[in-house]
Design a protein around this nucleic acid. Structure first.
Lengths: 250, 250
DNA sequence: CGAACCCTTGATACGCTTCAACAAGAGTGG
DNA sequence: CCACTCTTGTTGAAGCGTATCAAGGGTTCG
C-alpha cells in the first residue's frame, strides 16, 4: 500500500517479452556448454549437430509429457522452461524451472521409460532433441565423449541433491535467500550491493521454492523491512549481502 | 498409553543386530546389480572386480566426508548407510538412507570436486570404491559399458526427482504412506494385507521423511486409529492397502 | 468499458515443530 | 543382583511457519 505507485510494473504480460526463437540457434555452442570445459573436437561437434534436431516452442507449449515414452534426450538451447507434473485436475505444478542452455531431460531416455516430468515452455524457446540410439552409436566412434556425459549427468545429480537439502533443512526465508544469491551468480562476490531484475513471474519463483505466491510476497516485504533488500516491482536490489548469505546457509 | 505392553520392543540396540560384514562379499553380483539386466560379460566383470577395492565399515563409521575430494566412486555392497551432511554443531543430519546394493556416490568423482554429502554407516557394511581414472581407462577397452553406466546414473536422477516431488507436494502423512509402500516393494500388489518389520530406528525413518520423530510417532498412532495399519513396536502390518495408496499419491 | 491476469494484504486455520516429561530396555559397574 | 545412566520411543501443551480463503488494486487486452 505504500510503494505501489512506483513498483508493480508487470513488465511481463501473458505473452512474454523476450522472443528467444528469433535469435540464431548456435547448436554447437550449446553442446559445448552441456559437455564442459575442454573444447569439443570439430569432428565430434559436427556429428553431434547432425544427430540433434532443433525445435521451437512458443510460450506455454508442452515440450514433452510424462505420458510419453522417452526415446530422445532433450536440451533447452535458449529461453525458459518449467519442469513439473501436470495432474488431470490442476493446471500445472512447476517443480523446477530451467534457463537454457541446460538439460531438460537427460536421464529418462536411458531407462527406456516414460519421462518422469512434464516440460512446458515458459517463454518462446528452442529445444534440441537427440535420439538415444543415435547418441549411443555415435559414442562407439567417439568413446572419449562418455566421461563428459558422465560429468554432465553428475552435475545434474549435484543440483538435485542440493534442492533436496534445501527443502529438507531450510525454511522459506532461507530458500529464497539461497535462490536470490544463486540468481546473483558470480557477481555476488564483489560488491555488497547488487541489483537484479526478476525474469519470471513471482508465482513461478514461488513454485520453485515450494511456497505460495502470498508467502513470497510477505517474504519480500519482510526482508525489505529488515533492510536486507529493496524491492521495486520486478527489480530487487540486494543491500546486505552478508546477512543474506547468513540466512541462506541452514 | 494403550498398547505399550505389547509393542515397544526396541529390537535394535545401539549396536546393530545384523552384522553385514560377516557375509561373503559377492563383488561381481554387486556390479551386476548396479549395471542392470543384461548379464555382464565375464571379461568385463573380472576387470571391474580388479579395479574395485572392498572396504568394511562398522556401524557409525564415516565412509566419506563432504570435505574430501572425490576421486573414487562408492558403492554400498551390503548393509545400511546414511547420506546427509554433518554440520560442525549438530551430530549428523540424515537426508537419505540407502541399503546395499546401491550407489553411495557415483557423481562427485566425475566432477573432480568434493563429495556433496557425508556418508555414515548405519549398520556394519561393505563398501566398494573404484578410482574414477581406473574406470575411465577400463571404459576405453569396453565402450559398451558406457550406456549401462548412463542408465544407472539416470536411475539415480529419477529417484532424486521423485524425492523432490514428494517433498514439494505431499504432506507428512502422504510421504510416510509412500515410504511404507515403497518398503513393501513388489509384494504390495498381491495381498491387501502385508506385514513389514522396520529395519531402522524410527528416528532415522523420520529423518528421511523430513519430519521429527514425534510427528512420526503421532502419525503411526493416527493411521492405526484409522485402521489403515497395525503397529506393534517395529512390526507394521498394512491392513488397508488401497487407502494407503490413495494417501500416497499427492 | 469489462474481462482476465497478476500481485498484494489481511484474517484465519492447520500442520508440524519445539519443549518438557515420562516409560521402557540395554549396558555398566558396584 | 541392583542402581545408575544412556538411548529410544511416546505423549501432551504451546507456538511458529505456512497455507487457505477472501478482498482489493493495478495493468493489459479485446
Amino acid at each position: 500500500m505504500e510503494s505501489n505507485v512506483i513498483s508493480p510494473v508487470p513488465v511481463r504480460a501473458p505473452g512474454r517479452p523476450l522472443d528467444a526463437s528469433r535469435q540464431p540457434p548456435a547448436v554447437a555452442s550449446t553442446w559445448q556448454a552441456m559437455l564442459g570445459s575442454p573444447p569439443l573436437a570439430a569432428a565430434v561437434a559436427s556429428e553431434l549437430q547432425t544427430v540433434s534436431k532443433l525445435h521451437k516452442f512458443s510460450a506455454a507449449a508442452t515440450v514433452f509429457s510424462h505420458e510419453d515414452i522417452a526415446r530422445e534426450l532433450f536440451i533447452l538451447v535458449r529461453g525458459e522452461a518449467a519442469l513439473g507434473r501436470a495432474l488431470p485436475a490442476h493446471p500445472f505444478q512447476t517443480e523446477r524451472s530451467v534457463r537454457g542452455p541446460a538439460w531438460l531431460d537427460a536421464s529418462s531416455a536411458w531407462l527406456g521409460q516414460k519421462h518422469l516430468q512434464d516440460a512446458v515452455a515458459q517463454s518462446d524457446c528452442q529445444v534440441l532433441s537427440i535420439p538415444r540410439s543415435a547418441l549411443q552409436t555415435l559414442l562407439v566412434r567417439h568413446p572419449d565423449l562418455a566421461p563428459r556425459i558422465f560429468s554432465s549427468q553428475a552435475g545434474q545429480v549435484q543440483t538435485l541433491v542440493e534442492v533436496i537439502h534445501d527443502l529438507m533443512h531450510k525454511d522459506a526465508e532461507g530458500r529464497f535467500a539461497a535462490w536470490l544469491l544463486h540468481r546473483c551468480g558470480s557477481e555476488a562476490e564483489g560488491a555488497a550491493e547488487l541489483q537484479v531484475t526478476l525474469q519470471e513471474r513471482k508465482r513461478d519463483i514461488a513454485a520453485q521454492l515450494a511456497i505460495t505466491p502470498e508467502t513470497l510476497s510477505r517474504l519480500l516485504r519482510q526482508l525489505k523491512r529488515k533492510g536486507l533488500i529493496d524491492v521495486m516491482g520486478y527489480t530487487v536490489k540486494v543491500l546486505d549481502m552478508p546477512a543474506l548469505r547468513a540466512l541462506a546457509l541452514d
